[in-house]
Nucleic acid binder design. Structure first.
Length: 1113
RNA sequence: AGUCUCGUAGCUCAGUUGGUUAGAGCACUACACUGAUAAUGUAGGGGUCGGCGGUUCAAGUCCGCCCGAGACUACCA
């Protein structure tokens, strides 16, 4: 063994485990040595592995759930770097959007209405800009503290001109491809406030309120045509449809039925005009309205009498036409397609009639199904030649609608005293008089109200800009197939279904703080221009100056800001010299985040090749919460598919929520939110990180329990720390140096070979899991190895090797083995718990070479020995059972026993067992292990049917056959063992049972103490002979002396002299085993003193002994 | 309301293409070990596998319905 230059160095003693302290030490080491930067520089020429950081919004404090997603992201960045990839990790901030606006309004004590009056848009936006990165420092601190390696120095920020410029470029691409259009959509709208409301605003508490409205079931008279006559002959038929908003009836253009719902034609009487009529209604709802009879009579009944004339399937009704109920206006577009029955998926039979009054101008579902069926909305031309609905933006009916003209649709909208009868009531009366109302009643239902004015919200068609995502629906679906979703079901289910039911992306937001829509239009709306860059804007402004619309070009000013209000001041000139104004909308903030792959690099103005040559796009991996499925995941996917027909990300983990330990959502209000800083300060980031990914698969919700973090700290990190301390203690005593020449693996003993085999199996396992983006099973495998295999078995059984005997090859091999295991465990763990693994790695290697700059360990297949792993498993099983017997018999392990007997069925197992026989003996303190053929007569055997094998063979008769096999007697089993087959009589049939179909198991051994688990059985000879007793005494004596040594503070290596005085029997035992004892307790001499000695009294197996120990100088 | 996830011991989680004694850790109790020692080992109790129904010789596992928790989307005549 050659001496090494390092061999006078020592492995550092790490003291008590204090993870948070260690982490701070490592953090400053990383910072000083620029380890993160180096880990990227090292891979400069390597293949890139692309990661996108989904930008958080820094206007709120980070929570513990952010630790979750950031841990997942960090794990893969580090792992891929170790595997030789170049992983750039650019941070980013999401800075626009409603939450920012709301927070600023709260802070300033203003509402949206005050913008432009009490506060200018400029001041408002400045306030937003200041507020949005309020907690950036806190976020950066958390990012750093949890060890999330992310480039925080050059993050992308969505409000910068550069970022916005890329968005404009992308929007222009969409515009030119014809994917950007202006259209109507039905949105919640508050006429009282004169503004559209977002779903977010509508979900404010208290917005949905129970109100009592006049509801009407109206009668729609079917038009006579071929289809109608075919179905119903020449009978006059009314379709019944219910509404709680009668004011929408003049705007009705269709009736919607459910294709799968069954309907009935009922003969009955209109209760208001007492006229016999035939009505159409869902079959399920008949009992709700009718007393079904055979013949109408004048007798009084609780409900209306009705005769079912015929039943019709919903699908047959589609296409039927009807006469307009309130013919006050005609739809401008394709009026010939109006007033027909169409089908819709939303129709139910839980209320109403199963036929839904459909007014596409005032209902989102209505608009959707009408559009699908080609039915026009009720829009008419006004004097300005614009198409408008029958109700204006103040919530008032337009002119020319008879008695309805200029009346508010809801009485709440009147600023002065409202009329006695609301429009709804007036309409009900009108219909009653005409014999077109089947039922009118007050109805209580929940209806949304504006959170600012407290007045009802209308669903109203508003103009918006849309991205025509439906045009590429098939591509979106096809590209989604290429994405590896974790979990798979999120991709197929939630995301897949979402794509199947895709609607166009509503891009418009009527707000102030966000990316302005770069579209300028002439006043007549006939010409529009989409601007795709600042330079293009500047050129257009120059043209505008020429045309005399503008005086100065603000783009030349270095501080020019692309936000409102400045952008609104720009007027452009059309080709034929008309003024063009910017469309006042901002775009959906989700477009900001979906554009980050390009905008973070200011593509295509800079870094063109990063995108075009697929260097930084698409992402190999992203991870966010599952709540982003229809948010960021979708917008990334949509933009990349629309513009590049590519996926934006190849692999994605959609992680679940972090709940409190009781499974409730964390919230500041409830006070159950866990503070990430405090938690990390107490337990350490490594423990939190490990706990989070180890506890449950990331896509399940995590019930975050500090007890679990504590357990991780104690069990995993504590064990690892102890294992190292053990290594360090003895390695330093012997002057071991890991850099010295390695002893060939083949020349190491069984235990060493075994743990190395497991180590390499573990490496392989972790790699497979990680390739599969499965972090949970990776950590579980590592944890099992560290705790069960390395610490509980390898160290425990090898302990003696480390502190007994010479510093010879066997010992060196053991040190090398343990060192290698620890070193590679550090590498395996480093992605998950980057701090402690680095700390330990540097201690093990005795220098300052970070584990994060290493390569991931390779699995050495030739070291893996499955037979060895199997036999050690056998040793563990049998040892455990023997210890179980000792326990029951109350024989302590220190008392040697004579013999273990193990019955075995096959040769292979027998061979394997013989190889580990020594380990079993040592572990159980027995003199002999006898592995014997299980057919020996002393074994009592039973036959166990193998259901899996027998199942397909005997099928239905399984129960019977299994019963028969279990009833086999000794001779049946012997015969079966000999012949390898048997048969069972089943009626006339004889069923052949082969050796695979039955397992013969030893159940008991006569005259021995036995124990069995599964198919393993072991017997123990518990007879203690005189010799065994003596040896037991000797070992007990050693134990007592060792305790004494420790008690009196002797060093592990101190030599001693012993004098003792005791009874004859124990003295005999000690003298007989004097060599063994001397060796164990490092005694130079052990002598019996027949004179009373000054000593300590000990007790050995119930016998008193006086002992005097002197340290040998 | 729809879509998705989850429901197994007091707690946190495993449980292979369905195969007959449903596992592990924590906690609890008892014991053992005592040169890894503020560590460790062994044993024990603890389960109508959310409920009901179905398919099957056989269901924790497959199917249907329901209940509970959560998320997202939508908001209805």
């Amino acid at each position: 063994m050659g001496s090494s230059p390092n061999n006078n160095k020592k492995y550092p003693s790490l003291g008590k485990l204090n993870l948070p302290e260690i982490e701070k030490e490592i953090l400053s080491f990383w910072k000083e040595q620029k380890i993160f930067e180096k880990s990227i520089e090292n891979r400069q020429n390597a293949e890139p592995w692309v990661f996108f950081e989904g930008p958080p919004s820094a206007n709120g404090m980070p929570g513990i759930h952010h630790v979750m997603s950031r841990t997942i992201k960090d794990i893969f960045g580090r792992y891929m770097t170790l595997n030789g990839k170049l992983v750039e990790r650019k941070g980013g901030w999401d800075t626009h959007g409603l939450p920012v606006e709301l927070q600023v309004e709260k802070k300033l004590g203003i509402t949206k209405e005050d913008i432009g009056t009490k506060i200018s848009i400029e001041e408002y936006n400045n306030a937003c800009r200041e507020d949005v990165l309020k907690y950036k420092d806190v976020w950066d601190e958390l990012t750093e503290r949890i060890g999330f390696w992310l480039d925080l120095d050059k993050p992308y920020i969505t409000y910068t001109n550069e970022y916005i410029e890329t968005i404009w470029y992308l929007l222009k691409q969409l515009f030119e491809k014809g994917y950007l259009y202006k259209g109507y959509t039905i949105q919640p709208y508050s006429p009282a406030a004169g503004t559209g409301l977002s779903s977010h605003e509508l979900n404010q508490p208290g917005c949905y309120r129970d109100v009592k409205d006049t509801s009407v079931i109206a009668q729609f008279l079917l038009t006579e045509n071929q289809q109608k006559i075919k179905l119903f002959g020449d009978k006059k038929v009314f379709a019944l449809a219910w509404t709680t908003t009668p004011w929408t009836l003049p705007s009705n253009t269709a009736l919607t039925i459910g294709g799968k719902i069954n309907y009935a034609l009922v003969k009955t009487v209109n209760p208001y005009v007492n006229e016999k009529i035939n009505v159409l209604i869902a079959e399920d709802l008949l009992p709700k309205y009718f007393e079904l009879v055979d013949k109408l009579s004048s007798e009084k009944t609780k409900k209306l009498q009705g005769i079912v004339l015929q039943k019709i399937k919903g699908i047959e009704l589609i296409g039927l036409q009807y006469q307009q109920l309130m013919p006050f206006a005609t739809p401008y577009e394709t009026p010939e397609n109006a007033f027909q029955i169409i089908s819709g998926d939303f129709v139910t039979t839980s209320d109403g009639t199963g036929i839904v009054h459909t007014a596409p101008t005032f209902g989102a579902d209505d608009a959707r199904v009408a559009k699908l069926a080609g039915v026009p909305p009720m829009l008419v031309k006004n004097q300005q030649d614009e198409l408008i609905p029958l109700v204006d933006k103040k919530g008032k009916f337009i002119e020319g609608l008879g008695f309805l003209s200029n009346k508010y649709v809801k009485n709440e909208f009147y600023t002065q005293t409202p009329p006695e009868k609301s429009v709804d009531v007036e309409i009900a009366i009108y219909l009653k008089e005409k014999g077109l109302a089947f039922k009118v009643e007050k109805y209580v239902h929940s209806y949304p109200h504006c959170w600012r004015t407290d007045k009802p919200v209308l669903y109203y068609p508003l103009e918006s800009w849309f991205v025509k995502t439906t045009a590429v629906k098939q591509k979106l679906i096809a590209n989604n197939q290429k994405i590896n979703w974790k979990p798979k079901t999120t991709g197929e289910g939630r995301f897949g279904h979402w794509l199947q039911n895709l609607v166009d992306w509503n891009l418009s937001r009527s707000r102030y703080w966000g990316t302005p829509l770069p579209i300028w239009r002439t006043e007549d709306g006939k010409q529009s221009k989409c601007i795709g860059s600042i330079s293009e804007l500047s050129k257009e402004i120059d043209k505008s100056i020429e045309a005399g619309f503008m005086v100065k070009n603000p783009c030349t000013n270095a501080n020019f800001d692309l936000h409102r209000p400045f952008i609104d001041h720009i007027t452009l000139a059309s080709e034929d010299g008309l003024r063009m104004h910017r469309e006042p909308d901002l775009i959906d903030v989700w477009f900001d985040s979906g554009a980050m792959p390009y905008a973070q690099w200011h593509y295509p103005f800079d870094n063109k090749e990063k995108i075009q040559k697929n260097i930084a796009f698409p992402a190999d991996f992203i991870a966010e919460g599952v709540d982003q499925t229809r948010g960021w995941f979708f917008t990334l996917h949509a933009i990349s598919t629309l513009l590049f027909d590519q996926v934006a990300f190849k692999n994605v983990i959609a992680n679940g929520l972090v709940l409190d330990k009781n499974g409730n959502k964390m919230s500041k209000r409830l006070g159950n939110a866990v503070d990430p800083f405090q938690t990390i300060e107490k337990y350490g980031a490594d423990a939190v990180r490990w706990y989070m990914v180890n506890n449950s698969p990331p896509w399940d919700n995590l019930k975050f329990d500090l007890k679990g973090v504590e357990e991780t700290l104690r069990k995993l990190f504590g064990t690892l720390h102890n294992t190292y301390s053990f290594f360090e203690l003895y390695a330093n005593i012997d002057g071991f140096d890991h850099s010295a020449k390695h002893i060939s693996k083949k020349n190491r003993d069984t235990l060493d070979q075994w743990i190395l085999s497991l180590l390499n199996t573990l490496i392989e396992e972790v790699m497979v899991h990680m390739e599969n983006y499965d972090i949970t099973n990776s950590t579980r495998a590592i944890q099992k190895f560290v705790i069960d295999d390395l610490s509980n078995w390898y160290i425990r059984l090898s302990r003696r090797k480390f502190w007994k005997g010479e510093f010879g090859d066997e010992k060196i091999a053991a040190f090398q083995t343990l060192h290698e295991c620890l070193e590679k465990v550090c590498m395996l763990m480093s992605s998950f718990s980057p701090f402690y693994s680095d700390y330990l790695y540097m201690a093990l290697t005795r220098n300052k070479n970070s584990v994060h700059l290493q390569n991931f360990p390779k699995c050495q297949l030739d070291i893996i020995n499955k037979d060895l792993e199997t036999k050690m498993a056998l040793a563990q099983i049998y040892s455990s059972m023997v210890l179980g017997i000792r326990k029951k018999e109350k024989i302590k392990v220190r008392q040697p026993l004579a013999k273990i007997m193990i019955p075995v069925a096959d040769k292979k197992t027998k061979e394997l067992l013989l190889d580990v026989e020594g380990i079993i003996r040592a572990e159980t303190n027995t003199k002999e292990v006898q592995v014997v053929d299980f057919q020996e007569a002393i074994f009592e055997q039973i036959a166990k049917p193998n259901f899996k094998k027998l199942g397909p063979k005997v099928g239905k008769n399984m129960k019977f056959v299994a019963q028969k096999i279990q009833e086999w007697e000794r001779e049946d089993i012997n015969k079966f063992n000999k012949e390898g087959k048997a048969s069972v009589q089943l009626g006339d049939e004889e069923i052949e049972i082969s050796s695979d179909d039955v397992e013969i198991v030893v159940k008991d051994i006569h005259g021995w103490k036995t124990e069995s688990t599964g198919s393993h059985t072991v017997a123990l000879d518990i007879h203690i002979t005189e010799n065994l007793r003596k040896e037991g005494d000797a070992r007990e004596f050693v134990n007592k002396i060792q305790n004494l040594r420790k008690e009196i503070g002797l060093d592990v290596t101190d030599k001693i002299d012993i004098k003792f005085d005791t009874n004859e029997s124990l003295a005999l035992a000690i003298n007989e085993f004097i060599d063994y004892i001397s060796l164990e307790v490092l005694a130079n001499s052990i002598s019996q003193s027949f004179h009373k000695i000054e000593s300590i009294e000990l007790e050995v197996n119930g016998q008193s002994i006086n002992v005097d120990i002197q340290k040998n100088k």
